[in-house]
Amino acid sequence: MVRRTKEEAAATRDSILDAAEILFAKQGVSRTTLQHIATAAGVTRGAIYWHFVDKGALFSAMMDRATMPMDTAIQQLGERQVADPLQRLRDELMAVLHIVVNDEKARRVFEIATLKTEFTEDVDSARVRKREAVAEWRARMEANLAEARGKGQLPAGVDPHNAATCMWVIIDGLLRNWLFDLESFDLMALGGEVIDTFLAGLKVR
């Protein structure tokens, strides 16, 4: 009986987080109340407070259980051995775009963190998590670009840090604009062209 009660409690918690995730993506974090979430999840507000002290705690739990596209790409490509650092960089960036396009859950959480969150004190964990994810990706890109420069694939005058920053700005801009209107352009096709153009531009400096 105790085990079933724990399982039911876990299922209720998951249903609350699922409902919150969908509502946050649809109408934004600040416009979503606990009552909205309770209604969508088919529970009472009391049930929400049994699991989470407030909306900030609920939001943090939702983000903690989520896997961002960048994290998923690292997991998928982490075991691959690619000798060419520029090809490795391209593969990683294209993997992020592919996950955003094809993994609805990952896309939804990324959209919440990027476009649907007002960074107030109660949801500041989103700002921290995004900053950490971006810093990690910029570091990965910078390492690949530095290795490429060391191998003579890029001119000595290319600054890996600055190039990685520019590359992230481009990718972030692509993702933001595509998320505003999923039908506006083919993210994979245009993203591949943009990445290839940028890398080609670095080579001819």
Rank of each mutant, 00 (worst) to 15 (best):
A61L: 03
L97F: 01
V53R: 14
D91E: 11
W50L: 15
A41T: 08
T72N: 12
D84N: 02
L58D: 00
G42Q: 10
I37H: 06
E136K: 14
T44I: 10
V100H: 07
A135C: 08
W137H: 06
A47E: 15
A133P: 01
F59G: 04
V100Q: 05
G78R: 01
V101W: 05
K55H: 13
R108N: 04
F119R: 07
A61E: 05
D124E: 15
E79A: 12
G42T: 05
Q81W: 07
T39S: 15
A83D: 06
E79H: 14
Q81G: 04
K105I: 12
I74N: 02
M62E: 06
K130V: 10
E136C: 05
T44V: 13
V134N: 03
E79S: 12
D122C: 12
I99N: 00
R65L: 04
E136Y: 07
F119K: 11
A66T: 01
L34G: 15
Y49S: 12
Q81N: 11
Q81H: 10
E104K: 13
I48Y: 08
M68N: 05
G78D: 00
M62R: 02
D124A: 15
Q87V: 04
Y49M: 12
F110N: 11
R90V: 03
D71N: 07
D103M: 03
R108T: 10
E136T: 09
T33W: 09
T39C: 13
T67E: 09
D54T: 12
K116V: 02
R129L: 14
D84A: 00
H98G: 07
T67P: 06
L97C: 03
A41D: 05
Y49T: 13
T117L: 10
D71I: 02
Y49F: 14
M94L: 09
E136W: 06
I99F: 01
A40C: 08
A106N: 06
T67L: 09
D124S: 15
V134H: 03
D64S: 12
R140P: 00
D122I: 10
P85F: 00
R138H: 07
V123P: 03
F52D: 01
Q35H: 15
G56F: 11
W50Q: 14
D122A: 08
V53S: 13
A73G: 02
A106R: 06
A83K: 06
A40N: 08
A106C: 10
I37T: 08
H36S: 13
Y49H: 11
V100N: 05
T114C: 09
E132I: 09
E104I: 08
T120D: 11
M94C: 12
A73N: 00
D124N: 15
V101M: 11
D84I: 00
V100G: 04
H51E: 11
K105N: 09
E136S: 07
A95V: 03
F119D: 08
V82Y: 00
Q75P: 05
A73I: 00
Q81P: 02
V43T: 10
D122L: 11
E92T: 06
A113S: 11
I48F: 12
V128D: 13
R65S: 03
R138C: 08
E111P: 04
A61T: 01
A38G: 11
F110R: 09
Q35L: 13
L93G: 05
A133M: 07
T67G: 13
A73P: 00
